[in-house]
Every structure is written in C-alpha cells, then in structure tokens.
Nucleic acid binder design. Structure first.
Length: 419
RNA sequence: GUGGGCGUAGCUCAACUGGUUAGAGCACUGGACUGUGGCUCCAGUGGUUGGGGGUUCAAGUCCCCUCGCUCACCCCA
C-alpha cells in the first residue's frame, strides 16, 4: 500500500520541539501582557477580497501565492497568507475602537502561502503577531520595537540585528518614486528582468533587489530619507531618539522596503545572521491608511509578525529543562496492575502528574522507561508489596526508596512532591 | 514558476574503477545483575538500497522515467 505523506511545505512539530514552541509562545504572551496587549483570535479563512485590497493586487502574495477556493455558494475564500488584514477587519467590524479600551492586540497561528519551500520557508507557517491601533506617535513605534527586542532577549536569542527605515507617506512617496524613476530611466536596460517590471509598478522594490548588478546600480540611487516630508522626517527622527532612550540597538537600512502595499513611514526587520536566505525573524511596520482603506475610521496603526519556525531555529534549547513525567507506576502481574491503576486514578484526581506502564514487561524494562521519561519517582507494586499492602516509592534522583502503605500514598505524594 | 544537490535500517552515515549473504554507530529488545533506571560489556531484532523500467553474466553503484527531500533564485515571516 502506498504510504500517505504530508503535503509539501507543511510539517509536523513533534514532541520535544513542541515543548520549545510552547515555551516561546508562553514567553511572548508574558512579554506582550507586560506591554498591555490582549489576545485576539482571528479566523484562518477570509473572503479573498480582504487580502487583495489590503496586501495589494500586484504583490506576489496576491498574484500567485494564495490558497483560494470557491465556497459552496460561489464566494471566493482564501486561507490567510498573513494576519494583519484579519485583525484590521475585526477591529473595524466590531467597532473595537468605540466598544473596548484595548487598542493593542496580538495573535498566533498558521498562515498559508504557496511558495516553493526552502530553509526557513514553509507553505503552512506560524506567526506570532501584534498590532497597535490609534497611536500615531513615534514613541509607540519605539515601544513596539523595544517589546520585540525584550522578547528576543528573554528567549536568549543571539545574532539578531534590528534594521529600520522609513518609506514615507502618500504625501512624500510619489516624489521619491519619481526621483527613482528618473535615476533608473537611462539605466533601465541594465536592470534585471524583474526590476524592469518593478520600474513600472513599484520602483521602490528595485532598492531591495539582490541581483548583484541591480544592487550595485542602486547604491547611488536617491535615498528615501532625503525625500521624506517634514512630518515623516520628524517621525523617523523621533523614533530613533526613542530607540536610544529605550536602549534598543538598531541600524539604518535605507534599502529596507517591505513587500506589502499597506506600509507607511516606519518599516523594520529583525534579521538573523545565521538563518540562510530567509533571514527575517520578525518584521513589520506602520500602516496609517489601511484601516481607512478597508472601510474604517481614519486610524494610525503599527504592527509586526514573528516567524515562529525561524525563531525556533535560532532558539538554543540546551538550557531548557527536560520535562518530567512526575510519578511513574511500575506494576508486576495482573492483580498488581489493578491496584496500580486505581492509585493512578487517585493521583490524577489530585492533579499529580503520573503515568503507568501497561506493558507487563520486566521490572527492569519498566525502570528503563521511567528513566527515559525522566520520572522523579517510581511507585513499584508487585506480588510481595500487594501482600504487605504497601508500595515501594523510589526517588530516582537520590536513588533511595521506602515502603508506603497504599492508604497513605496519595497524601504522601501530594504533600512531599513538588513537581 | 526556474535552477543545483541528494534519496542505503527508526536516526546519522559506510560499501575501491559495477563483483559473493549491503555494513557500522546511535536507538530498540534481551542478558551479564532470577523484582530495580542511567555507565560498561555481550548478544539479538531491524533493509523491496524511494518507486518503475532498461543495459549487463552480474546493478546500491551505469542510463531513462517517476516520486520525494533539500538548498538557492523569485518573494517573504
């Protein structure tokens, strides 16, 4: 029979790694909470239009990467390729601004993009994201970056660099686009095929091109900061001042241009130096017009998302404590198993972590299992113990053991064992 | 969508220019220790060499097809 495999670009997170995932998510929740964020749970599917309108018709995501299908009633539905659009939709749809004091939201979950998989890139990948609505001040930009910085620190992540840039606003960006067009106009034939297309619809992206020749050409290209309007410039300077106040290290990267259409002003990326080609661990930016463009009231906003798989690959799990199974019950013979099973249920009722081996194998093999599961204590029950009405309680670490009457076991374990 | 690299035991990998019964470490099971884990030693289980076809006296090795993985481009978390 043919073996059924998982879908390309989709993976299973097995026990062991899943402990790391849990740890990271927990840390993120803790850090977000100290900054005043609340969780929002958003759906995995949305009407296709939400993404085409927010991310942009001509972006790669919308043009060729979305998983889109017809619902039974003929409506177009898409598996979300990112989270911001849904959060904004929910924010508007439930009038969160008027009905709730919370303007800082975070989410976690899978995103879907049909790209060719490679290191750090999957077709189903997980993000932890956060968005702040209604604050246009540059200090919140710095606060958001400071929060990310703190999270990476608290996870002991090394070798990550924060890069920031400003891509201006609808007032000043057109002038910059024109300047870029003028600059590249006579060099057009030298650009790579892709950049020739970019010249037409999004010249900013030429700056981002990794083709060596384009990269070289772009070195002398106009810089975005020279074309910012005074408001955008003030905002960007304010951000840098606040980053210094907060003690968040960063570097300026004037080529940092994000691929999604909705970004304005601040854009940023936390880049992992040891990650290979897909090196952005976390990225985001300000999007002051998106809420309005999606039909809401004019509301400035900023957000980011973290690539879970990439963060996990930077995480050093050697310092993580190995999980313990708590109590392991080894029973020898059928009558002893009955008794052991009863004790097991009693322990579980007291929320004492406990597992039992049903294999009926030798004591040696059961002890080996207990060791592999990193059990703190083993309860041994055999014919002799049954006859005496006791169980042997063995401390696996101190290698000591004592006899405990059946009637006292639960109480003893509840009182003496700190798991 | 385009290119490169690679598919041998559960995992990591051997097997000279094609040549006998495809090996090792780890893991697993058992024993040394008749009911007590880790360490050590010994033994054992485990393979349609991804799949299909071809060349040959002979294919893990060469050729073709196919499936899969992987890295990079593109793009992005």
């Amino acid at each position: 029979m043919k073996q059924i495999q998982g879908i390309k670009g989709v993976r299973d997170v097995l026990p062991g790694e899943s402990d790391v995932w849990h740890h990271i998510r927990q840390k993120a929740r803790d850090v977000f909470q100290t900054f005043g964020y609340s969780e929002i749970v958003i759906p995995v599917i949305e009407f296709t239009e939400l993404f085409t309108r927010s991310i942009g018709e001509t972006t790669d995501i919308v043009e060729k990467e979305m998983y889109t299908f017809d619902d039974r009633d003929g409506k177009k539905i898409t598996l979300r390729p990112e989270g911001t659009a849904s959060v904004v939709r929910a924010y508007i749809e439930h009038n969160v601004r008027e009905t709730s004091p919370f303007s800082k939201l975070y989410y976690t979950g899978p995103m879907f993009r049909r790209e060719r998989p490679q290191a750090g890139r999957y077709r189903q990948f997980y993000q932890i994201g956060a968005e702040v609505f209604g604050i246009g001040h540059s200090m919140i930009d710095a606060e958001v970056l400071s929060m990310l910085n703190l999270l990476l620190d608290s996870l002991n992540i090394k070798g990550v660099e924060l890069q920031i840039n400003s891509i201006g606003c609808p007032q000043c960006r057109p002038a910059f686009r024109e300047a870029l067009r003028n600059f590249f106009a006579d060099k057009r034939s030298e650009l790579c095929e892709n950049c020739q297309r970019r010249f037409e619809f999004n010249p900013l992206r030429i700056l981002d091109c990794k083709a060596t020749h384009c990269h070289k050409l772009a070195e002398k290209a106009p810089k975005t900061l020279d074309y910012l309007c005074s408001e955008c410039l003030t905002h960007f300077k304010g951000l840098q001042d606040s980053l210094k106040t907060a003690g968040v290290p960063y570097v300026l990267n004037q080529r940092l241009v994000r691929g999604l259409d909705y970004y304005t002003r601040t854009t940023f990326e936390f880049v992992g130096t040891s990650l290979g080609a897909q090196n952005a661990v976390a990225a985001g930016g300000r999007y002051d017009n998106l809420v309005e463009e999606l039909g809401g009231p004019s509301t400035p906003a900023i957000g980011f998302s973290i690539g879970m798989e990439r963060l996990v690959s930077l995480f050093d799990n050697s310092s993580m404590e190995r999980r313990s199974s708590g109590i392991f019950i080894a029973a020898l013979g059928e009558t002893a198993q009955e008794k052991a099973f009863f004790l097991l249920t009693q322990l579980h009722r007291q929320e004492i972590p406990a597992v039992m081996d049903y294999s009926g194998g030798s004591l040696k093999s059961q002890m080996r299992k207990a060791d592999k599961l990193n059990a703190r204590h083993v309860l041994i029950i055999g014919e002799d113990e049954l006859a005496k009405g006791i169980a042997i309680l063995r401390d696996m670490k101190n290698k000591t053991q004592e006899e405990v009457p059946f009637s006292e076991i639960v109480q003893k374990l509840r009182g003496e064992i700190s798991i």
